[in-house]
């Protein structure tokens, strides 16, 4: 069989996957808190055709055996956690993280945790009639309450929410009366492989991963250069010009692989016409 054809096909598949990722990035270039993804390529599987000792001729450089690769494949998707630009919105429930950390949210009643950079939060009213700080999809934001336990931020009626740079939340009313509500829980992804991207702009724990090992709680201070900014949202960190350059590169690579494919097709045709008459 013409192995050029198989190689070209394999690589076209992986280039297609990279193109899909670029499309995903471009589509999310305006999504708050979105983190750019990129494909990691490796060369695919190798076969060594055995050669007898008589092939060890003068001037040969490599050890015996004819080494043949079979194209390339995508082995992983790397998420780029670089800081996105801050955009001022003036909305009190919009929070943005400066530095490397994630917000923790609760995705189901059992308390399953997920993580996000998307701080375009809102106040939702739950079944008990409480005004709870949630993500735009309605997942409650996890905070360390003043009594030390973990829970949600509930803003009393008639009070406005005020968030400090260290993540602590106060409820303030018109006459300046202040009630401490807790501190928004921020975590750092120390084992990012244990986090997988999920829908609704969230990162979820991979199956079998231990939350205590995968993430570590961080409290913003001046040493770790972390801060929570109220009234700002973090824009997507996708850089459109980089994506466009990448797209051109991948398109060209795809084109070249397609050319190799048609070239090997021509070769088969030539072999087929070996006896023309």
């Amino acid at each position: 069989m013409n192995s050029s054809m198989i190689k070209a096909l394999n690589s076209m598949n992986s280039y297609q996957m990279k193109l899909d990722l670029i499309a995903d990035n471009v589509a999310n270039s305006n999504t708050v808190g979105y983190k750019k993804k990129s494909a990691v390529f490796e060369d695919l599987l190798n076969t060594v055709k055995e050669q007898p000792d008589s092939f060890a001729l003068d001037g040969r450089k490599a050890p015996l055996g004819f080494n043949q690769g079979w194209g390339s494949r995508v082995t992983g998707i790397a998420t780029d956690f670089t800081q996105g630009t801050m955009k001022e919105t003036g909305v009190l429930t919009d929070l943005a993280i400066e530095g490397n950390a994630l917000f923790q949210v609760q995705v189901d009643a059992a308390g399953t945790a997920a993580y996000t950079r998307d701080g375009s939060f809102q106040i939702s009213i739950n079944e008990a009639g409480e005004a709870v700080l949630t993500t735009s999809q309605g997942y409650p934001v996890v905070a360390t309450l003043p009594d030390g336990s973990q829970g949600r931020i509930v803003v009393p009626e008639g009070y406005a929410m005020q968030v400090r740079a260290d993540g602590s939340v106060n409820a303030v009313d018109e006459i300046g009366d202040t009630i401490p509500l807790g501190r928004i829980r921020l975590v750092e992804a120390v084992r990012p492989d244990a986090l997988v991207q999920a829908a609704d702009n969230l990162f979820a724990l991979a199956a079998g991963a231990d939350a205590d090992q995968a993430v570590a709680e961080v409290i913003p201070n001046t040493d770790n250069r972390l801060a929570v900014r109220q009234g700002y949202v973090e824009q997507s960190n996708v850089d459109l010009s980089t994506e466009m350059t990448d797209m051109i590169r991948v398109q060209r690579a795809y084109q070249l692989a397609a050319r190799a494919l048609s070239s090997s097709e021509t070769m088969m045709q030539i072999a087929n016409n070996l006896r023309s008459n």
């Binding site: 050029s4 690589s11 390529f41 490796e42 690769g69 390339s72 590169r249 692989a257 190799a260």
Partner: peptide
Amino acid sequence: HDTITNNIANIET
């Protein structure tokens, strides 16, 4: 031809 195709397949690797 096979070897060159494999090189082309790994431009992004």
